[in-house]
Design a protein around this nucleic acid. Structure first.
Length: 145
DNA sequence: CTCACTGGGTCT
DNA sequence: AGACCCAGTGAG
């Protein structure tokens, strides 16, 4: 099973605009509708554990993944006060740009992540697979086998 | 000092 | 309500 999504400012931007300051959270925002459409893909909510310090906040930390064949670790996070489902991973942000397509493949034990830019021959096909629009956003996403 | 975690605030 | 953008802050 694969998940594809277009990447936008919030996903691969640096979280702040003040010159000279450091980057902030490298967070990829997954629309709640996308998570809800295929909860098993993300292991939601079974693979998540509740934060002992904060009720109803659920994290899934250090999820193993391969980014272009290189092992990385992804932190997934969500909490009820905010309408967010985030994938936190500095490595992905470093190789991604706005407009790129994020491709996540769920394997038996983990995930494989790819970033496809518009010059890639697979780009148009994957873009066509992003069949679902997002509320209040130009972002698009989809699942494919 | 740097970085990851948390969450304030705004827009649609 | 959901998505987006940005930034404070504590831990290491």
């Amino acid at each position: 099973m694969n998940f594809v999504m277009t990447l936008h400012q919030t996903d691969v931007g640096y979280g702040q605009t003040t010159p000279g300051t450091l980057p902030r959270s490298p967070e990829i925002f997954i629309p709640l509708a996308a998570r809800n459409a295929n909860q098993d893909f993300w292991g939601w909510p079974n693979e998540f554990s509740e934060d002992p310090e904060k009720a109803n906040k659920f994290d899934r930390l250090n999820v193993p993944a391969l980014l272009n064949g290189r092992p990385i670790s992804i932190n997934m996070m969500t909490w009820p006060d905010k309408s967010d489902f985030r994938l936190r991973c500095q490595d992905i942000r470093e190789v991604a740009s706005i407009g790129d397509i994020l491709l996540i493949t769920k394997t038996g034990s983990g995930y494989e992540v790819s970033v496809i830019n518009s010059t890639n021959t697979a780009y148009q096909g994957l873009l066509a697979s992003c069949s679902n629009p997002v509320h209040n956003s130009d972002k698009r996403w989809g699942y494919l086998n």
